[in-house]
Amino acid sequence: MFTYIIKRVIGAFAMLIVISMVTFGIFYVVPQWAGASPEAMASRYVGRAATPETVHLVAERLGFNDPVIVQYGRFVKGLVAGAEYDYGAGVEQCPAPCFGYSFISGQPVWPDLLDRLPVTFSLAIGAAVLWVVGGVSVGVISALRRGSFFDRLSMGTALAGVSLPIFFTGMISLVVFSYALGWTPPGGAYTDFSVNPAQWAYSLLLPWITLAFLFAATYARLTRAGMLETMGEDYIRTARAKGLHEREVVVKHGLRAALTPILTLFGIDFGLLIGGAILTETTYTLPGLGQFAILAIRNQDMPQVMGVVLVAAMFVVVASLIVDLLYAVVDPRVRLS
């Protein structure tokens, strides 16, 4: 078990290194293949109608004139040992892990990421609770009442939930619930949990529901299919023959087994979501990692892109590791080696 975890952690590190190299390559090497000069790359980070001198200075300051390998080395060194940042009037120490400074705003990337993490985490945790509870209960009821009106209605809704993009459902929900009815706060409202938990929940209510709706649909369908399968298993018959109450048969014996594949999916979904719920955060203007990612990409802000990509990748890797460990806990037949 311990060796297994060590192996996985080493593997995860190797993967993060590869991801960072690929991201770096896409950003620096691909434009070079296309013939872009350091100045052409720097021209993204200057103001309107900048003079060639300005562009040249910026290319130099951002280090675009160095070979790519040197630039990558500088990035890795910053991560491991920290870096220095010259802001004109002085020099600032950027302690490890230093993901560098934004090409656009000049802000250090790492504190920004840390600052935005709670927002994304809040969004993900609330939505996850809603979609797991909602999706699984709907799925269970649908499976137990297969073919009923409830089953057909909920599975139809689930199909819609999977198909409708969040920027559509999100915008509609804002227009209806926030602007027409005034029940929920407008887009962009976010209060930190530490400031006011009630306000926190209120400001996230609509994003939670919208995001949960999208995921709940998948979970409902999956739970239903899993329940239909497990409820036909021999051990369910055994449980009934023991004289167990039907509720316990369904929950303790049926659902317990049906939830295992859902656990896997949940781990990956949640990991991805912590890495940034891009569409939800963009639609509702939530200052989380997803919004950060989309802005970084739109601005071609390399250090920010790198930072958010690595953090997101780390969450996915960690989530899948946790899922694998949990799997062994949930299903005693699974042994890790």
Partner: peptide
């Protein structure tokens, strides 16, 4: 507030939230 979703911004302007 910055980095507000552009379409939502218009909606908020119409509704009076901003």
């Amino acid at each position: 507030q910055v980095n507000v979703n552009a379409d939502d911004l218009d909606n908020q302007l119409i509704a009076g939230d901003i």
